[in-house]
Design a protein around this nucleic acid. Structure first.
Length: 308
DNA sequence: AAAACTCGCAACCGCCTAAAT
DNA sequence: TATTTAGGCGGTTGCGAGTTT
């Protein structure tokens, strides 16, 4: 680029740009401009709006923060489940994963993975991408999330209502309940002589108990486990490392569509700040449990009547 | 009370791809 | 067809708040 007298060089232009956290005034300016002109053409927006920001910066601020349907607050257990599941299938395809969590941004999901999930892997001294860790996620973390999911008192979610009786309307508005199939099976690792699924006798039995005998878990590659791999998303069993999404409807969902969760977080669908996190799965619990196992200590297994 | 440490998250960076010229 | 530009994505950084020592 040539520089002419009286014009700014690229370097000078860069120096004129604002960087760092956005101010309230900048937010207002950006929101107002988009309200008048719509999204897109970010470089043009950056030039014409009066914002001294790059187009990229404007785009990021809008998509990750200012856009009205961005949801804020803690990730729900269901959302955590979806992230774990979809990440196991697609890896670090954050934007693709985010398409299935309406109102959640790829940045948020990425942060969740790095700060929560990878932290657990580090504490367990395993690679987050290893089969060991995937097994831990699949056989401990996900079932426990499902237990949280299922034991939520405020959740209008019943086994009956979701066993092959979902209406087309429900499918349309509650895609996650289509994805998270309550008829998932137990994780049975080394503790059962049978690999057949056990039919749940009551509601609580639907949610998988933790295995009593973990002598082979988790320190075996998943493809060596002679039990049955836990698979929350299909009614059958999977022996694959990836959690087979099977025939689930993975049509990306729109954040502008009605929020599909029935949890009573608050009146504002996009605001999860009222969600107190009680139902969140504590990863520290998981870590402690696995550490206890490694050290040979008895492990208390909550939620399960199969361990008495 | 204050320093040190940890954590969560917003924002930036660099690369890649597709569209425009 | 080659080059430029814009947009999108994943990785990384830095800062503020909270917690621990």
């Amino acid at each position: 680029m040539s520089e002419t007298r009286g014009s700014h060089s690229k370097h000078e232009d860069m120096e004129l740009l604002n960087r760092g956290p956005w101010t309230v005034e900048e937010d207002k300016l950006l929101t107002h401009y988009i309200a008048c002109h719509g999204e897109g053409r970010w470089n043009l927006l950056a030039r014409c709006s009066g914002l001294r920001r790059t187009g990229k910066s404007c785009r990021l601020r809008w998509l990750n923060y200012l856009k009205p349907d961005v949801r804020r607050g803690n990730l729900t257990p269901e959302e955590q489940l979806l992230i774990l599941e979809l990440h196991s299938k697609w890896g670090n395809r954050w934007s693709r994963i985010a398409q299935h969590l309406p109102g959640r941004t790829d940045n948020e999901i990425k942060n969740y993975w790095r700060t929560r999930v990878q932290k657990q892997a580090r504490q367990l001294k395993v690679d987050a991408n290893s089969s060991k860790f995937r097994d831990a996620v699949r056989c401990y973390w996900m079932p426990r999330l499902l237990q949280k999911f299922g034991s939520s008192q405020t959740m209008q979610y019943s086994l009956e209502a979701n066993t092959n009786t979902t209406t087309s309307d429900q499918v349309q508005h509650r895609p996650c309940q289509e994805i998270i199939n309550p008829s998932m099976q137990y994780c049975q690792l080394g503790s059962s002589s049978s690999h057949e699924p056990q039919a749940p006798e009551n509601h609580s039995a639907v949610f998988p108990p933790l295995p009593v005998n973990m002598s082979e878990f988790p320190w075996r590659a998943s493809d060596e486990i002679h039990g049955v791999a836990f698979n929350i998303f299909s009614s059958g069993f999977s022996m694959n490392n990836a959690y087979d999404l099977g025939t689930c409807d993975l049509t990306p969902v729109s954040a502008s569509a009605p929020i599909y969760w029935d949890l009573d977080y608050g009146t504002d669908n996009n605001d999860c700040s009222n969600y107190n996190g009680d139902n969140l799965w504590s990863m520290d619990e998981l870590c402690d449990m696995l550490k206890s196992y490694v050290s040979g200590a008895d492990i208390k297994v909550p939620f399960s009547d199969h361990n008495s």
